[in-house]
């Protein structure tokens, strides 16, 4: 699975903000830190704010801060905002002479997608942040 640029930006931004929910960071600082286009990130941040995962703080020192529950928000909650990852037919033809082949291939692709979805649904932000801490020790 290769994630779209917007999804990658969203994951970087949310995880950076979720490290310290009290801390506000500007979109420009996040963009600088991860080498992301500021314009692209601004649109992503608006989508994340609409999903109530981050909130925009106005005024001096304003920026964004994480507003979700890191113990409850999973990678799926973020990825599914930007990707069509729910399990669905992979599109192999299931009619005509190749119906049996199409059906068998669709089953395999569905199995792969189901594993990907259940993996994303099982990893909370807190779990991922803990993994990062362990890896840096």
């Amino acid at each position: 699975m290769r994630l779209q640029k917007a999804t990658q930006c969203a994951l970087f931004a949310v995880l950076e903000l979720a490290k310290d929910p009290q801390h506000q960071i500007s979109a420009a600082d996040i963009a600088d830190k991860f080498g992301i286009s500021a314009n692209h990130l601004a649109k992503v941040m608006r989508d994340l704010a609409r999903a109530r995962l981050v909130e925009s703080m106005r005024g001096a020192g304003g920026g964004y801060r994480f507003s979700g529950n890191a113990k409850r928000v999973t990678l799926y909650d973020i990825v599914s905002l930007f990707e069509d990852i729910d399990t669905h037919d992979a599109g192999f033809p299931q009619t005509g002479d190749e119906a049996d082949i199409g059906l068998a291939l669709n089953r395999v692709m569905t199995e792969i997608e189901e594993i990907a979805v259940s993996t994303l649904k099982s990893i909370t932000l807190t779990t991922l942040l803990k993994q990062m801490e362990r890896a840096s020790l």
Binding site: S118, K121, S122, T124, T126, T127
Partner: peptide, 15 residues
């Protein structure tokens, strides 16, 4: 089970 989100999330949280 793949859809056992409660236990899956718990064991993931344990590392």
């Amino acid at each position: 089970a793949r859809d056992d989100e409660l236990n899956m999330t718990f064991f993931r949280s344990q590392g």
